[in-house]
Design a protein around this nucleic acid. Sequence first.
DNA 1: GCGGCATTAAT
DNA 2: TTAATGCCG
Length: 688
Amino acid sequence: MSSGVVSGGGGTTSIVWFRRDLRIEDNPALAAGVRAGTVVPLFIWAPEEEGHYYPGRVSRWWLKQSLAHLDSSLKSLGTSLITKRSTDSVSSLIDVVKSTGATHLFFNHLYDPLSLVRDRRAKEILTDQGIIVRSFNADLLYEPWDVNDDHGHPFTTFTEFWNKCLNMPYDPAAPTLPPKRIISGDVSQCSSDKLIFENETEKGSNALLARAWSPGWSNADKALTAFISGPLIEYSVNHRKADSATTSFLSPHLHFGEVSVRKVFHLLRIKQILWANEGNTTGEESVNLFLKSIGLREYSRYISFNYPYTHEKPLLGHLKFFPWVVDENYFKAWRLGRTGYPLVDAGMRELWATGWLHDRIRVVVSSFFVKVLQLPWRWGMKYFWDTLLDADLESDALGWQYISGTLPDARALDRIDNPQFEGYRFDPDGEYVRRWLPELARLPTEWVHHPWNAPEPVLQAAGVELGMNYPLPIVEIDSAKDRLQQSVAEMWQLEAASRAAIENGTEEGLGDSSDSAPIAFPQDIMDVDHEPARNDTTSIPRRHQDQMVPSMTSSFLKVSDESSSEHRESAENSRQEVPQEPLRETLNQGSPHAFRQNNSPPQFNINMGLHNFEDVAESSSISRSSKDGGVVPIWCPSSSSSSEQFVVEENDTESSSSYLQRHPQSNELIDWRRLSQARTKKLGDRAS
DNA sequence: GCGGCATTAAT
DNA sequence: TTAATGCCG
């Protein structure tokens, strides 16, 4: 083992607390533990801490495999993973500290709201007990607090943020190699709990997953290499097709930290320089495009850190006044893939059956959800959370907020994308629809994305009976447009009224807290009986509040019980209708050409011209001195949800200014509110 | 070379 | 819808 940089090895035992950094390679917390002496690698399974965001079935399956993989790697290096079942991570940490005699705790940063709170607590409490706690950046190219505009404020649009990232004065830290050997700490007094990640029924449902996916850090590394040396070069050309085979397969790996994003970045850059030199513009474009999807992942963490309520509240406050349609039948039809819009339905069936969805299709189905059905976006987000293999709170929150028009740079709120046209754009030959909607399989391409227009003889010949074996559109696009216009107008009126009320001092705080009564979360919807969705839109109950999940920090509800049982049942239903996952058969591991399915990197990545950065090569030699090891991103929720304190603790001598001092208004709604008002004016002008 | 028209894609 | 790009006369 290496000589102990921190304290001379030998006597020092460190706990390395693994969370979503399930890799050996380029893992700063692990490296710190190895440097310090003997190591106790630890994983704590405390899903109840996640509240509503108890991981979904397929996500838990992945986690299980990934941990097994990690454990076997650790064993080959000389130690093994201690696992604890817990409802309180911090007490479990204390237990492990006591039973192992550890003096150090190392972990890598997470940026979701819950982890920010929990990690702060962990750090405080363990530090109080005399433990040396250090934490590191293993998840991002740059820490959120390092990327600011000229005034030192956080960016509020992606493009600005990403341009800044690409033009930082120092490179992301270079990835490091795995340790050669790990000396195990004394765990004779510290037993592992057996962790249960799936029940028997779920096991059955998960059985096929292993044929398509190989969780675990070294498999992630293989997937990365395979992608970069294969489909990457054509990524810009192919990434748009719903059925294309050229996405990276990396997003679940990235979610669990099986692969280092900094390694991805560095490998991409090598290709970029190579292709730039060769004058391969397609390749260059592809790298930029793919890098951008990495950037969106970064941005999701950045946003979550700076505005740690993004998973439950719209960033632009006016969306609170949007009159969401609370209709359980709509929601159900969407989940079942029975909306009558083939591209949407195909996507939802695929999600159901596989836990996977091409990011283009994610945009299609979520946009349909929000704009056509006008269902509360957080229901959709929650469903994604429950069903996606790569469910990721930060990325999904960003994606849904983008779709819902609640970001300053989101697409226009009142714009509806027509699934029919999107169908011909993303699935021009109808292959995707035919694969997932066997009832439409015999329909000619001409009609496959709008069967409701097809002549009766064509339908008959294809065996399609609209309203019987395939539904008519649940909502007409034209009426959806009308309804959306009305809703948006209503939203602005309410927002203006609220603002006036605040200015008059007649009402307070209507603006930004969770004052509005919540639209209950799906659990009261998930188990509704199987009623066909109605086409009539006149009697839909509406509520004038943003939907609101009970605070994550206060709730130990296991929503996923209902949702997963419903999901299972539905999946079973659908298996009769859906062809038996042809993709699994074709997904031979290791063969890039077998990648039938689109594993896009983090969700919602979309093409965008980035700056070429030829200067990247020169700047690559600059490395930055890490301020890791002391900084913990921290969020303290207060009783009022609108006034979260947001403090970064800095043990580091390098900087004495807290995050709050540097960004005094970063955690208030001020910025967004201002943006919201600017937008009010703009949209108001346009409307009049 | 330039204006007009079509195409594309948007975080 | 709009802005940017590309093609063609």
